[in-house]
Amino acid sequence: MNIFRLLGDLSHLLAIIILLVKIWKTRSCAGISGKSQILFAVVYTSRYLDLINAFISPYNTIMKIVFLAASYGTIYLMYMKFKATYDVNHDTFRIEFLIAPAAVLALIVNHAFEPLEILWTFSIYLESVAILPQLFLVSKTGEAESITSHYLFMLGSYRALYIFNWIYRYYAENHYDLIAIVAGIVQTVLYCDFFYLYITKVLKGKKLQLPA
């Protein structure tokens, strides 16, 4: 464990908490993409199956359980409890166009052709594009509540911090994982224009408005 990965995991945890608080406090999931939340649940489910047979550390196990519970909890809030506030007309990204290519690529490019390894690889590829429906929704509505932009900033920062973790591990621990690194860079790049808007607008107290 290193400071970059710890900060990354905490940023990730904070993002998930901010989202749950936003939905619970405002009793609304307006501006949030349920499609992205479904993709995140698929990512965590396919990646954390090793909870059953591999124990790394208490921290690792607890965080995996928290991420799984929070992602399914968010889906429950969005599609059941506060279903009336779900923006079904704008949340129209076809996630099958993200799931299928990730699955196909995982079958072709992986470290080993074994079920758990393929599922892990699939979850890495899917996570790199899982935010697209959310960014698509923000671009369609043209704006985002400031708490939603804080959520996105934390979520985007988590994988950006992981990139520093991978650089650190390459030099300090002599190992790397190219699949995770390439997918992590793609994932972070997708947030770039959002990061720009967040830093130039939201941090100045303005609302996040995308140029129409």
Partner: peptide, 10 residues
């Protein structure tokens, strides 16, 4: 540098 094998990251 060897390829990362154990999955110790979240």
């Amino acid at each position: 540098k060897e390829q990362n094998k154990e999955k110790d990251e979240l």
